[in-house]
């Protein structure tokens, strides 16, 4: 959502709208994490009155979807792809291969066994 998006560009990786969107989601999640955790705590705390807990449940479901951690997806730093990303390198399989062939990834070499 554009309301969360920063006015100035604040990432330096490969750029397309999906990358910017994912970056925004990460920032929003980080910002709202205490609130989510607080609501989750209230919901799970059985010593609190049932009404309070129900209210907390409502509030949690009404929070923006950008504040959910499940919205965050690993994206390729060099190509912005969303699938086939190696977590160790944060690159898609194609870009990983290109970088490995160039020798830009320390310690990575062709394997044969």
């Amino acid at each position: 959502m554009s309301m969360f998006r920063s006015k100035k560009l604040d990432i330096g990786s490969f750029l397309n709208i999906k990358v910017i969107r994912d970056h925004t989601k990460r920032k929003v999640f980080a910002q709202y994490e205490p609130e989510r955790q607080a609501l989750r705590y209230i919901i799970q705390n059985t010593t609190l009155p049932a009404k309070t807990r129900a209210e907390a449940q409502l509030q949690l479901t009404q929070m923006h979807c950008y504040t959910r951690p499940t919205q965050i997806r690993g994206r390729c730093l060099l190509g912005g792809k969303g699938r086939g990303i190696f977590r160790d390198f944060r690159l898609s399989r194609y870009n990983f291969r290109m970088q490995a062939l160039e020798g830009n990834l320390p310690g990575v070499q062709k394997a044969s066994w």
Partner: peptide
Amino acid sequence: QENWERIT
């Protein structure tokens, strides 16, 4: 396919 490895 191609195999890559990193040995620590």
